[in-house]
């Protein structure tokens, strides 16, 4: 068929323009803004004053930003290990032919279709509540003293645990689709060769899921880096050290917190650039670690 170049151009134009205006322009503006002293996010270029690496210096010397980064890394690493391991375990169990597979799959995925706000409220006001919460009811039934699950020592971990609860189902579905894509005859052959279920998991399932695991690590990295709502729900009035993450720090910088009128959109942009670079770094490293993932079966 003869290609009509003009037609292709006109059909592509709206999409290209949308991409340029809504994606490329904000990205370029944010990167540029991170090198300027800018108070308001929408301030005109005339109100910008060159600041060099000043914004980066400011955020990296900030105790709050360092705490936020540290919290984010722990959520990414510890939370990621637990979430992905649990998701993988459940996906293997659910694809092993157990009864009630559909029910368990729906039940484990259900937190993903409930609003995260409702989910966080349930955890805060019911599960972790000091006086009548589920956990303290169990603890007191066992004859132990009530625990302050939302005290400053525990809040970060309770928040992370709640986040993990809400995330496992999503990754489990990804793994289930990956496992179901592996031909059954490979397992049959392995069984005939005398491989146990555990051996089949480590020698067959895991290697053949490399590509899916790589994708899930990238997704998890994006989720951990853009972690916001759970932090807001666990510190509803004002930002707290135990729940602060970089996006919350960015938000406070750009919009100001309760009673705070100082704003620094330049520093906020610098936080955004740092987070983007982090995601790119994780993506590149993951690609290097899982180089040969395109196995054909």
């Amino acid at each position: 068929m003869r290609k009509n170049k003009a037609m292709i151009f006109w059909f592509c134009l709206p999409a290209v323009l949308s991409l340029l205006i809504m994606f490329v322009y904000p990205v370029c503006r944010t990167v540029l803004m991170s090198f300027f002293r800018v108070e308001s996010l929408t301030a005109g270029l005339g109100d910008w004053s060159f600041f060099g690496l000043g914004n980066y210096s400011k955020i990296f010397s900030s105790q709050s930003f360092r705490t936020a980064m540290s919290n984010m890394v722990v959520i990414w690493l510890v939370g990621g290990l637990i979430t992905l391991a649990l998701a993988l375990l459940m996906s293997v169990v659910l694809t092993s032919g157990i009864r009630g597979k559909k029910f368990f799959r729906a039940a484990i995925y259900m937190p993903n279709i409930i609003s995260a706000v409702a989910l966080a409220t349930m955890w805060i006001q019911y599960i972790f509540q000091y006086d009548y919460g589920l956990l303290n009811a169990i603890v007191t039934t066992l004859g132990m003293e009530k625990v302050k699950w939302l005290g400053s020592d525990m809040k970060f971990w309770t928040m992370t645990a709640s986040f993990i609860f809400g995330s496992v189902g999503y990754y489990m579905l990804i793994y289930i689709s990956g496992i179901e894509g592996i031909p059954q005859d490979l397992y049959e052959a392995a069984t005939l060769d005398g491989a146990s279920k555990v051996q089949q998991f480590f020698r067959l399932t895991l290697p053949l899921l490399k590509g899916v695991i790589k994708t899930s690590i990238t997704f998890w990295s994006i989720n951990a880096t853009t972690f916001f709502l759970w932090s807001k729900m666990f510190s509803p009035i004002d930002t707290e050290e135990s729940t602060i993450v970089p996006v919350i720090y960015l938000y406070d910088m750009v919009f100001g917190g309760k009673g705070v009128v100082n704003r620094d959109a330049g520093a906020g942009a610098a936080v955004g650039v740092v987070l983007t670079l982090l995601i790119i770094a994780v993506y590149v490293i993951t690609n290097r670690l899982f180089k040969k993932t395109d196995l054909e079966y």
Binding site: K58, S61, S62, Q63, S64, F65, T67, K148, G151, S152, D238, T239, E240, E241, S242, I244, D252, M253, G257, K258, G259, V260, N262
Partner: peptide, 26 residues
């Protein structure tokens, strides 16, 4: 009196100061 304006002089320390105060009450 303002809403804790005195704690806003160092916006980079605000959350750390608040957490230390929570520990005081704990």
């Amino acid at each position: 009196m303002t809403w804790c304006n005195g704690f806003n002089a160092r916006d980079d320390l605000k959350t750390s100061v608040k957490s230390t105060i929570v520990e005081l009450y704990e």
